[in-house]
Simulated assay, not measured.
Amino acid sequence: MAGACLIGRITVKNADKWAEYRSKVPATLAPWGAELLFRGTQSASYAGDDRHQDIVVIRFPDQASIDGWHGSAAYQALLPIRAQAADVVLIAYQN
C-alpha cells in the first residue's frame, strides 16, 4: 500500500454530533484522493491499553495530501463539530 495513512483514535462524547461530523467528512476527503480503509470499535486488547475505543484509517496518496486536506477550509469548518462530538487523536504514517 503506497502513500500515507491517517489513523484516528476516537472516544465519542456525543453520538448525535459524531453522526453529523461523520456524515460531512467524506465530501472533504474526495478532492484529496483519500480512501476510507477501515472504521471500527475495539473488540479486544492483547498488549497495552488504549483509552480510545474507536478507530478510523484513511489512505491518502501522500503526506502532502493529508496536510492539504487537514488544512482545507472544508475540513477546518468541521472542527467545532468534531470538538463537541469526540476526543480525537490523528496521526499520519508514511510508507
Rank of each mutant, 00 (worst) to 15 (best):
Q53H: 03
N14F: 12
Y46I: 13
A30M: 07
R22E: 12
R22K: 12
F38S: 11
A64S: 14
T28G: 12
L29Q: 03
V88L: 09
A4R: 02
R51S: 15
S43I: 09
H52I: 08
R9D: 04
G68W: 00
I10H: 03
V12G: 10
A47Y: 03
D87H: 02
A73Y: 09
L79Y: 02
S45N: 13
T28V: 13
H70M: 01
V12W: 06
D49N: 13
D87C: 08
D49W: 04
A77Q: 10
S45R: 14
A73N: 06
A85F: 02
L29G: 13
I10Y: 01
R22C: 12
A27L: 00
T28H: 10
A4M: 03
T11S: 04
V12P: 08
Q63E: 11
Q42W: 03
H70E: 01
D87I: 07
S43V: 11
A34P: 00
Y46K: 10
E20K: 09
V88D: 07
P61N: 12
G40T: 08
I66N: 03
Y46F: 14
A77R: 10
G8C: 09
R51I: 10
P31E: 14
V88I: 14
S65V: 03
G40C: 08
Q94P: 02
I10R: 02
K13R: 15
D49H: 10
Q94S: 13
S45T: 13
P80Q: 09
L37G: 05
V88Q: 02
